[in-house]
Every structure is written in structure tokens, then in C-alpha cells.
Design a protein around this nucleic acid. Structure first.
Lengths: 125, 125
DNA sequence: ATAAACTCCGTACATAAGTACGGGGTCAAT
DNA sequence: ATTGACCCCGTACTTATGTACGGAGTTTAT
């Protein structure tokens, strides 16, 4: 059993973040003995680790809540994954389009002879 | 000269958005005759169009403010573009890594035989 | 001339994911 | 027994980009 400070240090997050997840309903409020201090055991610790790993995968807190509530239904998890995959691929495609536009922009700057008139600015006008 | 409502409709944004850009200092407050109503001419209209186009390119309002203040210095614009390009490429790379992780996840779901234990959830635990 | 539509201003609310603060109680060490 | 470190709670603040609201004044149409 550890206090919130130890747990926060162990997980490399802030105390406030843990309290925040609790307020959001992602984790339960742990037992608080006479002192009123939260005491964390292994269950809550690994639940928090779960949250942090899922967050690193790009899931939002709301999605993580779903992930945890789905318990172990593999089909549901797979479907969330596929959905996420779709989002990611769309985002990549968007960014690649953007990349091309901005690449063209800077190219035209490089090719520009007149330093007083920027083709990018002109094209936006 | 048009009122804010006409302008908003013309640009397909809301009145509030125009007032918001004004508050943010992106555009000047236009002349307001006796009535107290904002009246917009061509200059402000094209400035707003500029903002909307730049926003569509993925520039933030803060960056757009810079873009407009740089007036026409092509080198500065190019450097902002290159910076943006860097960000975009990093974001793409991040997303591609993520794509692979989640692809693997869903693959392992598909290959899974026991519907009661999900390899994804297990790996997060 | 009256009603509908438009605009004004300031303020609060929205999202996501926290961070910061302030005044108080508690625990551990000296 | 006192000091410093730790924790409590509730609330406000943060960033970015707006959206919504409410009460008042103005303009336009009938």
C-alpha cells in the first residue's frame, strides 16, 4: 500500500493527474483509513498503468474508459481498434496532403527572385 | 460596405467568429458609423479570406498573425513553412508508428481463438 | 408605427487533459 | 513538540478555437 505521492512518482505522473482520473471516474477512489489519505494497492496501480499505456497508444480518456468497461470482449476491442485505425489513416492522409501544399509553398519561395513579394502571401491574398 | 452578418454569410463563418478574430487582434475593428454597427469593406474582407485560407492550410491563429505581420518578407515565410513542414512530417511519422501498433493489435484479435480473453487487453495489463 | 431581423457588448460555456492554488489536517523525524 | 514533508478538498486557471446567452439598441419591411 502506497500513498498517492509514491504512486505518482512510480508512474511518473503528477498527484493531480491521479486525482483527476479519479474525478473523471476512470479509477475508483481508493480506501482511505483514519488519516483520510488515499492508499493504493496493486489493483489500482496496474489499472493506472493500463490507462497510461492506452494513452500512449493515442486513445482518449473517454475511449480508455470504454476499453476498461468492455472487460474482455475481444470483438469489441477489435472493433474499437479498427475504428481508431481508420481515424489514424485519415489523419495521415490529411497531413500528407498538407505536406505537399506546404512543400510547394516553400519551393516557390526558394525559386522566387523578388524578395519583396512572396508568392505564398500572394497566393493567399 | 457590408454588415457583419452579410460578411459572415459570404465567408461561411459565424458572426461570433469574426468578433472573436477581432478580439484576438487578427483583424482591426472596422469603422462603426453612428449606428454603432461594424461596416466591412474589401480590405477587411480579403484579410479574413486570407485568414481562412491559411487556417485551411493548418496554420494556427497565432501563426497566421505572424504571417500577416511579416508582410512580404519571403525568406521569413519560407522559414515558417519549413518549420511547419518539420512538424507535419514528425506528426506523420508518429501516426505511422501508431498505425502499426494498432494494426498489430487488431490482427492479434482476429487471430485470437478464445473470445473471453483479449490479447490486446492482456498486453495492456 | 410596429414587428421582425439585425447588431451591440460582456460574459460564460464548450472540449481535452490536465495544472495551480490556498488554507487546512497529518505524518515522520529530530 | 516542532518542523518539514506530505496529503486533503474545492475551485480556478490553462490552451486553442470558437459558441451561446441575455438584455439592450438599430434598421428594415410591411
Amino acid at each position: 500500500m502506497k500513498t498517492i505521492g509514491k504512486l505518482a512518482k512510480e508512474l511518473n505522473i503528477s498527484i493531480e493527474t491521479i486525482r483527476f482520473y479519479e474525478r473523471q471516474g476512470l479509477i475508483e477512489q481508493p480506501l482511505k483509513p483514519e488519516s483520510g489519505y488515499r492508499m493504493y494497492g496493486d489493483a489500482l496501480t496496474s489499472q493506472l498503468k493500463f490507462i497510461l499505456k492506452a494513452k500512449a497508444l493515442g486513445f482518449t480518456l473517454k475511449e480508455i474508459e470504454s476499453l476498461m468497461s468492455l472487460s474482455d470482449s475481444c470483438a469489441d476491442i477489435e472493433s474499437m481498434g479498427l475504428q481508431k485505425l481508420n481515424l489514424i489513416r485519415n489523419k495521415i492522409a490529411d497531413l500528407q496532403r498538407l505536406e505537399k501544399v506546404i512543400q510547394d509553398m516553400t519551393d516557390s519561395c526558394k525559386a522566387n527572385q523578388d524578395p519583396q513579394s512572396c508568392p505564398v502571401i500572394n497566393s493567399l491574398k
